[in-house]
Each structure stands twice: as C-alpha cells, then as structure tokens.
C-alpha cells in the first residue's frame, strides 16, 4: 500500500506536493549557493536535521551512512587545507582553522541537501510526486509517462530479483553479489524481461492514446500549511544572502 495516498495526489497530506517539491529544490539551491558554515548552519537546523530525523524513521541505514561522507570531507580538508590557527587536537593531529571551517561548510551542505531530499521523500509518496510533476509542474507527457512506468516496474523488478536470487541459490552461486560479473548476471535477466515488457507496454500506451495526450497543467493546488514552508524558505534565504548578519 502506498502510504498517505489519496485519489487526488497529495490530498491526504497537510502540505501540497508542489510546495514540498519547490521547497526541496530551493533549499538545495541555497545549500550550494554558499559555503559559509554560519549560513549553512541555518539550513542545516531548519531543513537538514528535520529531514534526517524523518528520513531515519523511514529509510534507516541510509541516514547513518551520511556520517561516512562527513568523515570523508574532514579527511580531505585536513590533507588539503590544514593551515591557520589550531582549533582542537585529535590525538596527535592538530586540526587548524581553515580545514575545520571547510569541513563544517561541506558537512552542513551534505546534511542540508540530504535532509531536503529526505524531507520530500518521507512526506510525499512516489505516486503523488510523479502525478504532480506532470499535472502541476509541467513535465512533458512522454517523460512523465516514462517516469510513471518506471515506478510501475519497481515492484515488478523486485519480484524478478527474488526469482533470480532463488535460481542463483539453486545453482550454487552466491546470493550476495560481490564481483562485477555477479552484478551483471543479476541485472541481465531482469533487463531482458523488462525490455520485453517495455516494448508491449509502449505499444499498449500508443494504442491507448499516449501521443494525443493533451498537456496537463493545472494550477498548483496550494494548501494553507504551505505558508509554513514559505516562511521557512524565506528565513533560510535571508540567512544565505547575509541579511541576518551571519
């Protein structure tokens, strides 16, 4: 069952799909627009952390793994930029100002962007996202069809995957793929079956009028709670353009 879905996309959620989508995109842009740790701290607190918390509830391991990226950025900065006044000691290593500032900047960006994406993914289900991209945000019909069909294929491919893994076990091959050859031998049968399905689905879609499908563009159906997103977006924008004196 798709969680939180409704006949009209997004109806079951307090915020509209379009607003959530635009919010996530805007915060992503803000997160890349600046490298100042002070400014990015604002997007991290208002979007990044809430996104990670919601994301952790739904997607588990994905979120803690972000820690690896933060460690990676720290190592990079220490190797490349360990100059300036000492900030703190890590065992024998003296971490200096430049390296630390840059670590913070990049880390806050990683958290902000991941959080914005997770915030969207944990509040909007994929079906609603796909429908809204076409009907409210103007994605071209053919591309939107491809996206919707991809979503239809996802659970089908999961079923294929279980079958392929079952056969691997029967035939005495390891089920957890390690070598590129393992990956290839798992992907190829799935690809083969999917291509055959795709061909026929494409024919069926044409016979059902895909090529005369009118451009569907409704006005985005904003909701009252979207105002909260606007307020949050404004605060973060002001912070990033330096209006808040950070």
């Amino acid at each position: 069952m798709l969680s939180g879905s409704s006949i009209r996309p997004g109806e079951a959620r307090p915020v509209s799909v379009s607003a959530m989508f635009l919010y996530a995109i805007w915060i992503t842009i803000l997160g890349v627009a600046t490298g100042d740790p002070e400014k990015l701290a604002v997007t991290t607190i208002l979007t990044g952390i809430p996104g990670l918390i919601l994301g952790y509830k739904r997607y588990g391991i994905l979120v803690p793994l972000i820690g690896l990226a933060l460690i990676g950025s720290f190592i990079n900065m220490v190797v490349l930029y360990n100059v300036g006044n000492p900030v703190f000691n890590l065992g024998p290593l003296v971490v200096r100002e430049e390296a630390w500032r840059r670590t913070l900047g990049l880390s806050f960006r990683i958290i902000t962007l991941a959080g914005a994406g997770l915030l969207f993914a944990s509040t909007i289900n994929p079906r609603d996202a796909v429908k809204t991209l076409e009907s409210e945000l103007g994605m071209p019909r053919g591309f939107a069809f491809a996206l919707a069909f991809a979503l239809r294929l996802l659970p089908l491919i999961y079923r294929d995957l279980l079958e392929v893994l079952a056969v691997r076990r029967m035939r005495g091959y390891r089920r957890v793929p390690i070598s590129p050859g393992d990956y290839k031998s798992i992907i190829m049968p799935i690809l083969s079956i999917s291509i055959e399905r795709g061909l026929w689905v494409g024919i069926a879609a044409e016979l059902r009028g895909l090529s005369i499908r009118p451009k569907r563009r409704f006005k985005p159906r904003f909701k009252r709670m979207d105002a909260l997103l606007v307020v949050l977006a404004v605060i973060q924008t002001l912070a990033v353009i330096g209006f808040l004196g950070l």
Binding site: R127, A148, R152, L154, W200, A204, L210, I212, R213
Partner: peptide
Amino acid sequence: TGFVLQDPDKQVAMPTPLDEVAFTLENLG
C-alpha cells in the same frame, strides 16, 4: 477502440489501478 493484451504485466503502465484506468481517459482529454 479498446485493447486487452496477452499478459497484464506487459500492458499495465501505471503504478496504481486508479491511474491505470484514468490514463486512458486523461489521454483523451
């Protein structure tokens, strides 16, 4: 015209039944 093909897995294009049935109508405007 309407079409029913051999294998539903090679015909159904949309992720949910509602969208699958509505797809035909949306195409027709």
